[in-house]
Nucleic acid binder design. Sequence first.
DNA 1: TCAACATATCGACCAATGTCAATATCGATA
DNA 2: TATCGATATTGACATTGGTCGATATGTTGA
Lengths: 113, 113
Amino acid sequence: MAPSTPSAIFESLGCCSPLSGNALSETDAESIAAMFAVLADPVRLRLLSLVANQADGVCACDLVTVLDRSQPTISHHLKVLANAGLLDRDKRGRWVWYTVRKDRLAPLGDLFA
Amino acid sequence: MAPSTPSAIFESLGCCSPLSGNALSETDAESIAAMFAVLADPVRLRLLSLVANQADGVCACDLVTVLDRSQPTISHHLKVLANAGLLDRDKRGRWVWYTVRKDRLAPLGDLFA
DNA sequence: TCAACATATCGACCAATGTCAATATCGATA
DNA sequence: TATCGATATTGACATTGGTCGATATGTTGA
């Protein structure tokens, strides 16, 4: 006989807790959400794309002038991106050069496959 | 002769504004950031994965019991996901069934390619 | 050593948002 | 119609986070 309520449908599949099968764990969800939170800002997205479009990296001094934000704000966003592992930071004398970590970006794309 | 300052390097490439080449526009960055903001919450990520793992969709009544959140909170998150176009909402009598919109998720993955 | 410049940090402010209790709405069924 | 159960909305609260002015740190070159 067919189950009548929604949860009964899941229970009829033979498992104890209906939906916990191959779903995201709480800790996995938190770490993935943290990565998406880093990407959930238009200024950071533009910084990331600006850096990604220059194979040899970009000087922070140029990033400050391009977007319409103050120097502390750009510095803050670059730090967030670097702390998330999406940008590599390379100090060369007085300047700081950033390059994109494609090996860190790719796994995020796999989540949508 | 090699340019001495970082910005001079970009200007030597022959373009007016150094980094604006194929980078994200402000409006594009805003809309993409909005999509990532939807995904930047662990409860929403788990809801999405729970729905995605059931080919025939999931009843909201079951989603309420699985995660450790109140019914209004789950309802709120489902609304956010549906408004973003990531979930389809289908009201069947007293219950609401959700299915995932894979065609809306896939383009987000392409951003990392 | 000093001045100028690039970058980082601090402190404060304001907007956005996740959360829940209470309540409303809507559909099914007796 | 009346009641019950599923879902949505409202209002309030606390937290988070983007932003900037002011300032600190660190590096270069005179």
